[in-house]
């Protein structure tokens, strides 16, 4: 109903600008919706040069911001790069179309391990191609923190009041107290969510700010001593400030995979496949890895990494033991989402 009304009204307004619509159709293009700072701009330029297909590139900051935009149908994308649990949500709502892997020969470059892991959210491996993966952990400044950092507990240490940066996205924020309390990070038990929210509220006076992309610059600029960050950002920050160290806490964490999907209403499926194949090429995946420093599931690209320190880095490629207690997020249903949002509001206004 909601969509119908919005579309009807849009339809009433749109015919006034037929010129611009017609113009867009003439050119070959692919509309890509990706995370912020998640692709080397030169890669896009090279793709345009090689194929003549124009890449219309848009960015989002969290899965939660991306979803309503796609679900409302307000914008039509050909390729989107959501995380695991969001892909299962989109699948549950019948928003994706299967990918024709025959058109993507470079798919063979993707490590079997990650295709296997993707079954958590894409059971038949029909709808998604892994792009990046990683963990969530603590980035800390060794000159400002003198306690050993091996547990999430340190984010509740009053010694570091006003020196802590937390993640400003619901599920990443709740994952931390849930791991500390030994819960499943996909729990929808209200008592457990309430207990986790209580911990977050206890922590709030110590938190300097809730941030997403800014955590990187703030840690490099030594604005804070401890920050919750994605592993891919950690390598970048270490390049910029050598006092920074990344830890996967012993309680375990969230292991995530961001994968490319093609939404059902995509207009330029062929171009999307060409772009996907381009991204799966070893040399291109390597260039993206160098630029964004998020772990790549592309084995051809990993072999091409010249710097052994990076190729064997446990931040980029953690060992099995390091991930022993870690879990992947799965879609928890609309009621689960609502429950988390309700308690997140409570934490935010506490």
């Amino acid at each position: 109903m909601k969509k119908m009304l919005a579309l009807a009204l849009l339809a009433a307004v749109l015919p006034v600008f037929p010129a611009s619509v017609a113009q867009a159709k003439d050119k070959e293009e692919v509309v890509v919706y990706n995370w912020g700072e998640y692709m080397d701009p030169d890669v896009i330029a090279d793709f345009e040069k090689e194929t003549g297909i124009k890449v219309v590139y848009e960015e989002f900051e969290t899965n939660e911001i991306m979803y309503p935009k796609v679900a409302a149908g307000a914008a039509q994308y050909d390729l989107i790069c959501p995380s695991d649990y969001m892909i299962s949500k989109m699948l549950a709502n019948d928003m994706l179309q299967p990918i024709n892997f025959d058109h993507i020969p470079n798919y063979a470059n993707i490590d079997e391990k990650y295709i296997e892991q993707s079954k958590g959210f894409d059971p038949e491996n029909k709808y998604s191609i892994p792009y990046c993966w990683g963990t969530v952990g603590i980035l800390y400044n060794t000159t400002m923190v003198d306690d050993p950092v091996d547990s999430w507990e340190i984010l509740w240490n009053e010694k570091y009041a006003d020196d802590i940066l937390m993640q400003d996205s619901v599920r990443d924020a709740f994952m931390i107290p849930e791991k500390m309390l030994g819960y499943d990070i996909n729990t929808v038990n209200e008592d457990e969510i309430a207990a986790a929210a209580q911990l977050l509220m206890d922590q709030k006076p110590l938190v300097q700010a809730y941030v997403i992309d800014q955590v990187r610059d703030k840690m490099i600029g030594e604005e804070a001593a401890l920050g919750v960050i994605y592993s891919g950002e950690a390598i970048y920050t270490q390049r910029e400030n050598e006092n920074l160290e990344y830890v996967i806490p012993k309680e375990g964490t969230n292991v995530w995979i961001d994968s490319w999907v093609i939404p059902k209403n995509a207009k330029n499926v062929e171009n999307a496949e060409k772009f996907l194949d381009f991204l799966c090429r070893g040399d291109i995946a390597l260039r993206n890895f160098d630029y964004i420093t998020y772990s790549t599931p592309n084995k051809a690209a990993r072999e091409l990494i010249e710097d052994e320190e990076i190729r064997e880095s446990t931040i980029a490629f953690p060992t099995e033991e390091m991930l022993a207690n870690s879990q992947v997020f799965v879609y928890i249903g609309e009621e689960g989402d609502a429950l988390y949002n309700e308690y997140w509001d409570k934490v935010k206004s506490y």
Partner: peptide, 23 residues
């Protein structure tokens, strides 16, 4: 406010951009 201080504008914005509940 470092996303720590919630004003009514933020509450409404969150409903649209993150929760996705237009109503």
């Amino acid at each position: 406010g470092g996303s720590k201080v919630l004003l009514i504008g933020n509450v409404i914005e969150r409903q649209f951009t993150q929760v996705g509940d237009w109503n």
